[in-house]
């Protein structure tokens, strides 16, 4: 997409996520705004194979090699602050403790390369809060194993990501909007993750030192045929309400609004920029 479009939103954003083929845009944005928090995911590697997840350190090593190959090819290793290592993977409930172990192995392997990861990338409305709480061992481990430091000297930690629906202020509606707008289980699911961690382990999600990021967030499904559902003004209201709610709850450090770019059948919010952010 045009770098000029990215430049037009830089005054209004603190973070930017990109996927495969957007590395050039990310690099351009980071050059202009070095304190921008940049997140990258490469869709050429969506999630581990079952045998990689369940395969102990050898499985994690193989998956790390697959990730490193595409990140190197995309030329983003010196651009992104965080790499999301999987996307919307549905696994059995009993595998979540294994996901914690796997994430520790990956955090160790990639951390040794100076790479910070976001594990999870969970689908909106997933996982079950108890499943999320099974990542506790990863959180504890990550808190004790920073990956270098930020320019201000504070330690940098591995993190976790999930995908959410956005919040809209009461009264902002559209005939075409999805019925689950503002649903606490989809927009506010992080509060249930937090409750499960407190009930099971006596600590809050916010006690975890690494970033908790909503790396995909929209006020709908995010398909192209939803393009006319919200006006620019309504989207601006949604951005502000979401930022207000997330900041007030203090559990999520940032969010990436889905989506900018003309790819496949995904919604392209370019016509609403920079207005929906300003």
């Amino acid at each position: 997409m045009p770098d000029a479009l990215i430049e037009s939103v830089l005054p209004y954003i603190g973070t930017l996520k990109g996927v495969t083929l957007t590395g050039g845009n990310l690099r351009h944005a980071k050059t202009i705004k070095p304190d921008l928090l940049v997140v990258y995911r490469d869709y050429r590697v969506e999630h581990p194979a079952d045998f990689e997840l369940l395969g102990g350190r050898g499985g994690a090593r193989q998956y790390a090699d697959r990730l490193l190959a595409v990140w190197t090819d995309a030329n983003v290793l010196d651009v992104a602050d965080y790499f999301e290592i999987m996307n919307e993977w549905k696994i059995p409930s009993s595998w979540y403790p294994r996901l914690a172990e796997f994430s520790i192995c990956l955090g160790e392997i990639l951390g040794n390369e100076g790479i910070s990861i976001l594990t999870g990338g969970f689908f909106p409305g997933m996982p079950e809060p108890e499943e999320f709480a099974a990542l506790y061992e990863y959180f504890r481990w990550a808190d004790g194993h920073p990956v270098g430091a930020w320019p201000d000297g504070s330690p940098k930690y591995h993190g976790v990501s999930f995908h959410l629906a956005g919040f809209m202020p009461p009264g902002v509606t559209s005939p075409g909007m999805i019925p689950w707008i503002n649903d606490p289980w989809i927009a506010g699911r992080y509060t249930f993750f937090d409750q499960a961690l407190r009930l099971r382990h006596g600590c809050s999600l916010r006690d975890f030192r690494g970033p908790k990021l909503a790396t995909e967030l929209y006020w709908g499904y995010g398909f192209a045929d939803e393009a006319g559902v919200w006006t620019t003004g309504q989207l601006r209201a949604g951005v502000r309400e979401t930022a207000r709610r997330l900041s007030e709850d203090g559990l999520v450090d940032g969010f990436h609004i889905w989506s900018v770019g003309q790819v496949a059948n995904w919604i392209d919010l370019s016509p609403h920029l920079p207005g929906m952010l300003s």
């Binding site: 997409m1 603190g14 996520k17 996927v19 928090l37 602050d81 940098k156 967030l217 450090d253």
Partner: peptide, 30 residues
């Protein structure tokens, strides 16, 4: 603040690195 009887501490706020204490607003480039 306490919830379900468990006091929780917040020793790591405020800001660290690029994190401001408020939710960072951003875009997803696809």
């Amino acid at each position: 603040m306490t919830t379900v009887g468990i006091p929780y501490v917040d020793p790591f706020r405020p800001a660290r690195g690029p994190f401001t204490g408020s939710a960072l607003v951003g875009l997803h480039l696809t």
